[in-house]
Write a protein that binds this DNA or RNA. Structure first.
Lengths: 147, 147
DNA sequence: CTGGATGCAAACTCTTTGCATGCAT
DNA sequence: ATGCATGCAAAGAGTTTGCATCCAG
């Protein structure tokens, strides 16, 4: 389904799995490839729906644990929970999120945000592995027009 | 329990409720006063536990709907969901949050964050009532030391 | 009076856990 | 062969909803 990125994407995952002494399984490859192919933040449910068509007998718990693993490996980023659901984002570069309080839609914001001072404050308090994400919450155009 | 702020706090709520044509009820006054008294972000469950001692026969759904109302009235700010639970913050000035991924603790960060460009981006996309909040997620000192 | 607000209980959603089986190493 | 990873099912946590009753205006 995503032939252009398949090779490189699989290669990076296999390399990361081997480096962490984790097993390379068809489910992990397919879940990773699917999230990359969606090319936007997706819920576990969405990834699951898309993986089902590609690989039989995949379970939702496996999707959750694999997405969590991808986050640990640095090959995806867990965002949220946002609007009540956990999202997983294939984008690895810094960006932020815009959430509609009404319909739950999530969009990317590429505006720059100076997170250095906040991360520094976290470090000073003894936090490790700290990462910053800006969430802008509002009511989207459609929901605003719908009243 | 919070005599020093009680009068002013109640007054602001009563005024806001009247302005929005909503009713002034003992539950609303007590929930508002309790959140202010806690003086930190609290979950609905926490507010509920503290209100129970002050006013008999208060229900958790009422706490939820009242905290949501306070957010609408601008007398509290809903934060989250963070670490799986919705938090409500009596602080009205700009500040951000530091969350431990392990134990779920939430602390305030007072470091300045330039949210203007992100809010402007939201406005350009047609979002209304947009507000920005930075979430720094990491592992706190205690959890880091605990392994 | 009258309709918004409440209390209670139950439903709902998303996520996590337990356990037996299976497959990557 | 070994034990991590998986599938299935069921539990768990937090939040929301429905409805009869109550009380603020």
């Amino acid at each position: 389904m995503f032939p252009a990125t398949k090779q490189h994407t699989d290669g990076a995952l296999v390399k990361a799995l081997r480096a962490h002494k984790r097993r390379v399984t068809p489910q992990r490859l397919m879940i990773h490839r699917t999230l990359r192919g969606l090319n936007r933040h997706a819920s576990a449910e969405e990834v699951f729906a898309n993986v089902e068509g590609q690989l039989p007998n995949v379970s939702l718990p496996t999707v959750y644990s694999t997405l969590e693993l991808l986050d640990e490996l640095g090959l995806a980023r867990r965002v949220g929970p946002v609007a009540g659901r956990m999202l997983f984002d294939p984008r690895l570069d810094e960006h932020h999120h815009l959430v509609c309080l009404r319909c739950g839609r999530v969009e990317d914001i590429d505006a720059p945000v100076e997170t250095g001072p906040a991360l520094e404050a976290a470090r000073r308090r003894g936090y490790t592995r700290a990462r910053a994400g800006l969430i802008v919450a509002g009511v989207c155009r459609d929901c605003t027009e719908a009243g």
